[in-house]
Computed example of a mutant assay.
Amino acid sequence: MRTSPNRLLATIFGAVYLLVGVLGFFVTSGVGFAATEGNNLIIFAVNPLHNVIHLLIGAALLLGGLSSVKLAKNLNLTVGAVYLLVGIVGLFLLNSSLNIIALNGADNVLHLASAVVLLGVALSQDKSVRSVA
């Protein structure tokens, strides 16, 4: 793992997103599963669906980071692309009935920043490993 930026990043991001997913359940008591407005975890709005998504993404990244360079790189690329899409679409979902993961402005910034980091590392590091995404 020390020699692969993709494995290191996937492991770190995976652990952080797993932790955020777990901590999110401590603040979402009484919030509907897919409520358009959630409770704040620090400055980020979360609802139970948002927490489940964090757990799934965190688990995938952590497992990828602990498995292989190719899997970590592919997951960083895929999650980065999805977060880029979520970050952009999220800008239009605020105060909308379609906002089923209770996004707020801070979430959008975090998703866009995560996308830049994940995509940047996936596309620039571990060049000898072919990505399939």
Results as ranks from 00 to 15, higher is better:
Thr3Ser: 15
Thr3Trp: 13
Ser4Asp: 13
Ser4Gly: 13
Pro5Gly: 13
Asn6Met: 11
Leu8Ile: 15
Leu8Lys: 15
Ala10Lys: 12
Thr11Asp: 10
Ala15Asp: 07
Tyr17Val: 01
Leu18Gln: 00
Gly21Asn: 09
Leu23Phe: 12
Gly24Leu: 03
Phe26Trp: 08
Ser29Val: 10
Ser29Leu: 04
Gly30Val: 10
Phe33Gln: 04
Ala34His: 08
Thr36Glu: 12
Thr36Ser: 11
Gly38Ala: 04
Asn39Phe: 02
Asn40Cys: 00
Leu41Glu: 06
Ile42Tyr: 12
Phe44Ala: 07
Leu49Pro: 03
Asn51Asp: 15
Asn51His: 10
Ile53Phe: 13
Leu56Pro: 03
Leu56Thr: 10
Leu56Trp: 05
Ile57Lys: 01
Ile57Trp: 03
Ile57Cys: 05
Leu63Asp: 00
Gly65Met: 01
Gly65Ile: 02
Leu66His: 00
Ser67Tyr: 07
Leu71Trp: 06
Ala72Lys: 05
Ala72Asn: 03
Leu77Asp: 01
Leu77Val: 00
Leu77Arg: 05
Thr78Gly: 01
Val79Gly: 00
Gly80Gln: 01
Leu85Trp: 09
Leu85Asp: 01
Val86Pro: 00
Val89Asp: 04
Val89His: 06
Gly90Met: 10
Phe92Cys: 01
Phe92Gln: 04
Leu93Pro: 07
Ser97Lys: 11
Ser97Cys: 00
Ile100Met: 08
Asn108Glu: 15
Asn108His: 13
Val109Pro: 03
Leu110Phe: 15
Leu112Cys: 08
Ser114Met: 14
Ser114Gln: 08
Ala115Asp: 06
Leu118Lys: 03
Leu119Ser: 09
Leu119Glu: 10
Val121Asp: 09
Ala122Arg: 09
Leu123Thr: 04
Ser124Cys: 12
Ser124Asn: 14
Val129Gln: 13
Arg130Tyr: 01
